[in-house]
Design a binder for these strands. Structure first.
Lengths: 226, 226
DNA sequence: GGTTCTAGAACC
DNA sequence: GGTTCTAGAACC
């Protein structure tokens, strides 16, 4: 086996262990070389493991295997009673194949979740989301209330406008009638007025605001002449 | 031990196993009776376990212990080298105490998570939450837009009202001046009018709307007399 | 990255 | 509820 520095210590040791013919009675390649067998789990754990690792527990060994993506090969036992209960333990990995050590570097250890993962949803995130949702809800209620108030104001404004427009029209009519009355009056008194040389002033002070009335009267008079 | 049917099979068997003096060389109470010891893990697993359970794996036994809330008692080894590596395995549970079998019924198996747990946050929940948040956001924008429109309408309405009020005031002034003019006119022509026996009608048709003008004129005339 | 204890999940 | 395989998490 090439001393490939890209391959983690565990995989190097495992490869050596499986290859080594001295340990074949405990751990060795399976028939087809696609997996390896642990033949005597108990002695393997207590006698072999500590020579390569810092422990003598099968569980720790299996944990590492799973960490590197190895899967246990389960034996169906052909449906009959489970004879040979303490049969060999078998593990397999697509890139752990007899005679193909160049595949080893493709075996990756699963990422440790020491830091809280980015993609993971923790309770804190949920709390934040729910808190924000509550805030949005409160905000929503405030807006709804304001919307309702505005709408009501709007309706009141429309009513007032309608009222003012009506008043405006009524005043317009009043003014028109007054003007007609004046016109009638003026026409009847024209001769008299002309004799008295009295100018047709409609207000005592000659402010610009009087112009409008004068114009109206004039227009009405002229209209009547048409 | 009372045959308490409330106690799960595992706990009954474990209690029996620890109590039984025949198995004391494999599993027994610790000194203070607050925990139990497995003295020879390998022989215990292969020789004792299958007599009580449907397996001979220490791992399965430990899994059950954890499932029922037992905790391993870890030995500090006083900081010195870990001698006695294969020392006894020790497990403890607050309600698993020598001589107090009545406490056993307080030990509860942790709920199996076969069904997706209620209290658990799954990816689906997150998706739902985010989806709803997006909807709320869209809704919020709609409301904001409507609020903006309403506000603008409101301002326009206020402007129109202000405008109409001004017009109203102006018309009011116009009317007042017209009335004053008429009053002046009427006062000057009073003698003439009286001689002619002409009634003071301000409009050709005698509709109710004319009442207002008549009243105004009358009031103004009376005001001028004060 | 390695070791240990505990838990999740699937299957029985 | 029990058994098995795999994974999480803490600690080294």
């Amino acid at each position: 086996m090439k001393q490939n520095s890209n391959v983690p210590a565990f995989l190097s040791k495992l490869w050596t262990l499986v290859e080594d013919s001295d340990t074949n009675e405990f751990i060795t390649w399976s028939q087809n070389g696609q997996s390896f067998l642990v033949l005597d789990e108990q002695r393997f754990a207590k006698e072999i493991l500590p020579k390569y690792f810092k422990h003598n527990n099968m569980a720790s060994f299996v944990r590492q295997l799973n960490m590197y993506g190895f899967r246990k090969v389960v034996h169906i036992d052909s449906g009959i009673v489970k004879q040979e209960r303490d049969g060999p333990v078998e593990f397999q990995h697509p890139f752990f194949v007899q005679g193909q050590d160049e595949l080893l570097e493709n075996i990756k250890r699963k990422v440790s979740s020491t830091r809280p993962e980015e993609g993971k949803v923790c309770q804190e995130d949920i709390s934040t989301i729910l808190s924000n949702a509550a805030k949005v809800q409160v905000q929503q209620e405030t807006i709804d209330l304001r919307l309702f108030t505005l709408k009501r104001d709007n309706e009141a404004l429309w009513r007032e406008i309608s009222d003012l427009r009506n008043k405006h029209v009524q005043q317009q009519q009043v003014i028109r009638k007054i003007v007609q009355f004046i016109v009638t009056l003026v026409q009847k008194n024209r001769l008299v007025s002309l004799k008295r040389k009295q100018p047709l002033l409609l207000n005592t002070n000659n402010s610009p605001k009087s112009t409008r009335l004068q114009t109206m009267v004039k227009e009405t008079v002229e209209d009547n002449h048409h």
